[in-house]
Design a binder for these strands. Sequence first.
RNA 1: GGAGAGUUCGCAUAGUUGGUCUAGUGCGCACGCUUGGAAAGCGUGUAUACCGCAAGGUAUCGAGGGUUCGAAUCCCUCACUCUCCGCCA
Length: 417
Amino acid sequence: MLDIKFIRENIESVKQNCANRVVKINIDRLIETDELRRLKLREIEALRATRKAGSKGRPDPEEIERLRALGDGIKQKETELADIEKEYTELMLQIPNLTHPETPIGGENDYRIISEKPAPEFSFAPKNHEELLTNLDLIDFDRGAKVAAAKFYFAKNDLVRLNQALINYGIDLVARHGYTLMETPDLARNKILEGIGFNPRGSETQVYSVENTDLSLIGTAEITVGGYHADEILDLVDGPKKYAALSHCFRTEAGAYGRESRGLYRVHQFTKLEMFVYCRPEESETLHNELLAIEKEICDGLGLSYRVIDVASGDLGGPAYRKYDIEAWMSMKGDATKQGDFGEITSASNCADYQARRLNIRYRDGSGDPAFVHTLNGTSVVTSRFPIAIVEQYQRADGTISVPEVLQKYLDKKVIG
RNA sequence: GGAGAGUUCGCAUAGUUGGUCUAGUGCGCACGCUUGGAAAGCGUGUAUACCGCAAGGUAUCGAGGGUUCGAAUCCCUCACUCUCCGCCA
């Protein structure tokens, strides 16, 4: 959420920003409802002040009659205000975050490449992970579909070990960087989901909700760690609060199937170790770079071929102010003209104060008034996407898979299969 | 799941026959006095949001509704905490 005062004073740039982000919203109507609600609020407050003064002491019957009428008028106006507020809030929630000046302006498929490592070279025709994993009896999608639904799967044998090894590798690495480890609930209240920027309801929802409750399955631990300090005033004098949270993640991925999402690339459930940072505004850009640096360290450690992109304005989603994605080379990607291509494995976002405003997370800086914190989030390791990159990049001619050196101690073997 | 008790201004508490309660007291914290310095003591101050050019106003006593001229106080719903019982990895 943006500050309404900022929007009022910067109408044109907010409109331009929405256009850059490919978000269609009626800003003029927002300004209109904002003016209406303030006007109405002023009226109501004046009436309430009158009533309060009149109710002091013991009003006589005649006075009570007058106050009763006054009360009816207030109630009437309060109903009107509620209607205006509803429209106003709905519009406010749709306004995307501001955009970093260096973010490339563009649509969903645009980006700026920040760095790129060359694709691995094979002396044979590389297979995709689905084929490799199925041949080695490491995965079972059919039975995942039978037991749960399409795009659920059973991991088996050494894929289970590989997943655990990845998580352990990630845990050890982020802990060295001073991140506080957490396991979080896999469900959260819808209010928290909304604060982070997920929409728990409607046809466009990305999350599963639990019937007869106010809970949804989380799409990422960003939701639960972000909610962790909701409605709190943080003490950040000793530096930012850094967490690394492990959780299952659930995504409906409605209508998202197709060639690009084969196998493990787009599944309904996975496990992720997510970094999340609360900091002072002036620190957020530095910490965004730190998150990216850690993500690169993780990928470098695994010896992956990957590139880093600066995600374009139209692909940022609502909350992000700037976003870096790491895309690893995958043999499953590409088309007729190209064998393999880069596919997203991690993402690091600086959300500035957008989430903090919605979740009411502030900090006190010295003696000054509390101000909103900045929040950032970034993937450290994630099952599904990391295994794709590892399996496809480390595959050998005979269909077995080399284990990246840093994972060998966790997996206790050098070759899978 | 059943029965009961609770949720008040950073912390702890007072306030439940509805009005003078946004709210007392203690602790903590800040500033000042005192002191060679400190402790103690004394004094003063100590929530947030919104509206308003301002003066000032409004809202908030877990959350949301309701009754009332008026609600921290009464009613309803929900959340959470604690105690006991049941169940359980």
